[in-house]
Amino acid sequence: MRLVVVSIGRLKQGPERELAERYRERFDDIGRKLGFRGLDIHEIPESRARDAATRIAEEAVAISAAIPEKSVLVALDERGDNLDSSAFARHLGRWRDEQAGHTIFTIGGADGLSPDLRRKAKLRMAFGAATWPHQIVRVMLLEQIYRAATILAGHPYHRA
């Protein structure tokens, strides 16, 4: 199974991009041994529309175009479930074992994800009740994907 993070907005050069890349590389090292075919990041430019509804709709079209058929869709959404790392690892392991071709993680822009994308998601997850910048959400997501792989591998990185 290939994992893909589809995110509105670009991470500019700097510490957030470096940290995101570090977790992506760490996942690649351990993930292949666990049957994952890689972790890609697909950045989509933010809509320049004047109103939020149009921005959300335009970004939803771009996100949808990046989702292959029969993918597992995970929406990062402040109204989503707060999962602990072990539960998240169990989801990834189950989808891998069910031979899902892709698991797509979507991170919306400043206005969030469209209701349609949230409805289509097999899992809607949040990183607590706080509102986070989408650049930080990407780093947190990549760390959790790496942590899930270490849990699945029985690696000591995760200490509960």
Rank of each mutant, 00 (worst) to 15 (best):
T54E: 12
L152D: 03
G112A: 02
Y23E: 03
E58A: 07
A66C: 14
L113C: 04
D29G: 11
Q99T: 15
R26P: 01
H158R: 10
L3R: 12
A160T: 10
T54N: 04
I145K: 05
A149V: 08
P133W: 02
G38N: 14
S86Y: 11
W95P: 06
T103F: 10
A130N: 11
G109Y: 03
M125A: 02
L123H: 04
R79N: 08
Q144H: 09
R124N: 11
G112H: 00
E46D: 11
V139I: 02
E98V: 11
D40R: 15
Y146F: 15
L19E: 03
R32K: 15
Q135W: 03
R119I: 00
L19H: 02
G93S: 09
G128M: 01
I136V: 12
V4W: 10
E98R: 15
V74M: 08
D84A: 09
L11D: 04
K120W: 08
I63Y: 06
L117D: 04
T103P: 10
S71T: 14
R10Q: 11
R124S: 06
S85C: 09
H155G: 09
Q99N: 15
F127N: 00
V6G: 09
E25Q: 15
R96K: 15
Q144M: 09
I63H: 06
A53Y: 10
L92S: 05
R10N: 11
R32I: 12
G80D: 01
S114R: 02
G14R: 00
L123G: 03
I145D: 04
I41N: 10
H91W: 11
R147A: 06
R22E: 14
N82I: 11
A110S: 12
